[in-house]
Design a binder for these strands. Sequence first.
DNA 1: TCGCGCGCTGACAACGTTGTCCAGGGCCTA
DNA 2: TAGGCCCTGGACAACGTTGTCAGCGCGCGA
Lengths: 342, 342
Amino acid sequence: MAEPTRSPAHRYGNRPTMKDVAARAGVGLKTVSRVVNGEAGVTPDTERRVQEAIEALGFRRNDSARVLRKGRTASVGLVLEDLADPFYGPLSRAVEEVARAHGALLINGSSAEDPDREQELALALCARRVDGLIVIPAGTDHRYLEPEMRAGIATVFVDRPAGRIDADVVLSDSFGGARAGVAHLIAHGHRRIGFIGDQPRIHTAVERLRGYRAAMEDAELAVDDAWVSLGSTEPERVRQATAAMLSGPDPVTAVFAGNNRVTVTAVRELSGRARPVAFVGFDDIELADLLGITVIAQDAAALGRTAAERLFRRLDGVDDAPARTVLDTVLIPRGSGEIPPA
Amino acid sequence: MAEPTRSPAHRYGNRPTMKDVAARAGVGLKTVSRVVNGEAGVTPDTERRVQEAIEALGFRRNDSARVLRKGRTASVGLVLEDLADPFYGPLSRAVEEVARAHGALLINGSSAEDPDREQELALALCARRVDGLIVIPAGTDHRYLEPEMRAGIATVFVDRPAGRIDADVVLSDSFGGARAGVAHLIAHGHRRIGFIGDQPRIHTAVERLRGYRAAMEDAELAVDDAWVSLGSTEPERVRQATAAMLSGPDPVTAVFAGNNRVTVTAVRELSGRARPVAFVGFDDIELADLLGITVIAQDAAALGRTAAERLFRRLDGVDDAPARTVLDTVLIPRGSGEIPPA
DNA sequence: TCGCGCGCTGACAACGTTGTCCAGGGCCTA
DNA sequence: TAGGCCCTGGACAACGTTGTCAGCGCGCGA
């Protein structure tokens, strides 16, 4: 009558299951399930017995098994670039809040701006059968997600549009924001304005550069190639780019930075200069108010919230055509953008 | 011979399963499993047939089912206070990197500094059967996790110790850091030093206050109750606290801030003052270098990394006694802490 | 009093995967 | 040539839960 050794696949440190609870309470398996899920049709007395058994055994429902049976995981995935970037923290948090309101958990993953890693992550989340996916693309080709989307995984892109597939996307107005920022510098008398952006693979980088060019063109100002620099946001790269456009025979008198990573380095570089240089940066930054940095602010939390709401509408069965939502940006003048040309 | 309607529980938009792949490839179910998992013992020819069927059907293994069978979810949970706080972003990212190196995904949740929400989140993660849990406690009683830990969910606490249970914890040296920061102010001639901290429920807040008191005591300086303020990090609260200790008959000449949230508000408040006030803050902040803010820096990424490494060592079966790891802090003088008393 | 219906309960299958085990066939050796 | 072994493949059960359905007992109406 010795207890046979448990199945070798048994892990979880031998946690009690509903079966164990049922045995202890002297009821059927399904009755335990009913109690655990608060379903109707259980006598108060039976319910009490089951509850006692649950307490005594320290039972907790295995949601892994539940998921398998129900077909919904009540979880959504978020693939972003880098959670350590202060732009993405609030975005992720906003997504989490919406998910929470819908009873879902959030699985985060950072692509580190690497398209392969983005794909690997997104597909891993699909294999987990997240109900939905929010992606901040690193790559430019998302056809790899088509089978997954067809198979029922709702997908929304944020901050940058999907590449080569038709899908929901929520964006900030990068073009308009950059154009307004550069126009602001022009309005303050600048004619030679530098632009330091992110890698040209990235949609927002291209859009903001386009905004810069549009503002210059609006004012009928020619753009010298030496004033424009796209590339990684590595501090050293940005430092050199900044230094380069401030030296030479025809230095810029103002700089527009394409995002928050560029801004922190560019501002450091500019602060060391004798001659003041006007500056406007895309993205607001904490303490930028104290430093008097003029920025084009986008609302990261609103991006995340809007995308998540779109996602859950899809999960609720709304099935209209993929939509593009564009959120406005705001120019916040704080001093650096109002410096006149030297 | 009409196709019978599929089982009503069938979701996932009718994704193909291994069974479907097996049928199409004309092989057994287990053979598909072998191919998908790269197990040995399949002829190249059979493998090719299976691969083709997988491609054709767009099959992707359902990790939910896999998890159920294998007993390991290859995921870890992280309960923190607020992902939007720039202190937690890098911490979370560091945990994610370690998890990734171990092939695990990370599920994030924010407690919003609410003990009930912390518990709800942590238990939800346990129900998902995460392999391990990293918790930045909001509450002070974690006995609710005992059954889970006994049942095999490895748990490590970060930034603040667990309450009323014995568990691994990774901390920064809050006491030593605060003491060093306040001693630094004293060394620059200050005798009346204010302390603005977080809520007294929070361990780090208490430790840092203790460090403040120790430094004052070391220098044989009495502490006036009016110089000490604990409470929420709401800007309005911090603003008032700062203003209060700077007014009155015996105003402080220096302020020590208990964390980054307090710092950003206190620095704003101080910057508007005519009379310069010395300042040291706990936690480094982006752009603090440009603002000349002296800080006690802790390494958020190292906290996360250390905790995650500890967690995965546990998951690898290491079973020694719960340990407390304390990471050093660094004083970074940048000007604000070196201002002499007015 | 009998029959019917309803409220409660439990047996059973299914979700999609993996571990175990056995069968069949080909090849090598004695 | 027979026997044994290895290699490949597949049938089956199990992971822990929930949906379906049937049965039981009791109360109420005719």
